[in-house]
């Protein structure tokens, strides 16, 4: 096991950064919409739509992962501080 060092403020800052970044990643439905009329080609529209579907799923997965990671950092900070308070209260 690695040595344990925790700066609660740092963890919250890290968690905040990651969570904010996650919110920027999601792709809305326009990226996988059918653009046959605008593009004037069903082949191009199909290729763009298929790629868009894949990109949206990928973006959701990345955003979900980052939110989970950010939440874990925040939870670590909270748990550490709670434990620290409980231990110090017992002294």
């Amino acid at each position: 096991m690695a040595d344990l060092v925790i700066d609660g403020a740092l963890l919250r800052s890290v968690a905040d950064r990651v969570t904010t970044a996650a919110a920027e990643i999601a792709l809305d439905a326009s990226y996988s919409a059918s653009l046959d009329a605008e593009l004037g080609s069903s082949a191009v529209a199909s290729a763009l739509r298929d790629a868009g579907i894949q990109q949206r799923v990928r973006a959701d997965a990345v955003a979900h992962s980052l939110l989970e990671v950010g939440a874990s950092a925040a939870a670590s900070a909270a748990a550490f501080e709670q434990t620290d308070r409980r231990l110090s209260g017992g002294l």
Partner: peptide
Amino acid sequence: DASGPGWTGDTQTAF
């Protein structure tokens, strides 16, 4: 930031 001296341990590695 997470890789600096303010946070080490298994959770940091997992993060």
